[in-house]
């Protein structure tokens, strides 16, 4: 089963397989426990603080019309540019989701039956919910060939300027 979870998180399942797995997850509480467990283990193994704030394009796209994995740190990040990064990011999303699942789980003794069902996968039709949880609107991503950014990077990409010259030439 873990292989299927892993494939889902990595966006490797095609539409039908993914849908089927998500539908089963919604219905089957035992499977939900397994899903939680899978992420808890992953979460424990990865503790990088940067990697838990991103969201993979594959999972993000699915949020629009599917049961939503609640991600508190979801930032409206554009599609990752390469496979390697997207793999990390998708794992990170999974880790965030697991964390929420744990928090929701811990608090569920005070909540209604419906909320308990939502321990990892919420069936609210809510890309909006993810939006409201994002910390701040991100500035639009500039293209790689943005002339200002390139010029700035070129101008500071000189170790002599930024280290040695800083203490002599820059002193005015």
């Amino acid at each position: 089963m873990n292989e299927q979870f892993s494939a889902l998180v990595d966006g490797e399942l095609d539409g039908k397989e993914g849908d089927a797995l998500l539908a089963r997850l919604k219905a089957d509480t035992e499977l939900q426990d397994g899903w939680d467990h899978y992420h808890l283990i992953g979460d424990a193994m990865r503790q990088n603080r940067q990697l838990d704030i991103n969201i993979t394009a594959a999972v993000h796209a699915r949020l629009a019309d599917e049961p939503t994995v609640l991600a508190p740190a979801a930032l409206p990040q554009p599609a990752s540019r390469n496979r390697r990064a997207s793999r990390w990011v998708s794992l990170a999303l999974a880790a965030s989701a697991a964390l929420v699942a744990v928090i929701v789980g811990v608090q569920s003794d005070n909540l209604s039956e419906d909320a308990q069902l939502a321990s990892a996968v919420l069936s609210t039709p809510a890309p909006e919910a993810v939006q409201t949880l994002a910390m701040a609107p991100a500035a639009p991503e500039a293209p790689a060939n943005n002339p200002y950014m390139q010029a700035h990077q070129e101008s500071v990409s000189n170790p002599y300027l930024m280290t040695a010259s800083y203490s002599s030439e820059g002193r005015r």
Partner: peptide, 30 residues
């Protein structure tokens, strides 16, 4: 502190652009 003050050409711009570079030793801005 100001580190550079140059006029430069930039891709997609017909006129030269004034470019100033500042740094605090760790962070920098143009």
């Amino acid at each position: 502190r100001l580190l550079r003050d140059v006029r430069r050409t930039m891709s997609g711009r017909s006129q030269p652009v004034r470019h100033l570079v500042y740094s605090d030793g760790l962070a920098s801005f143009s």
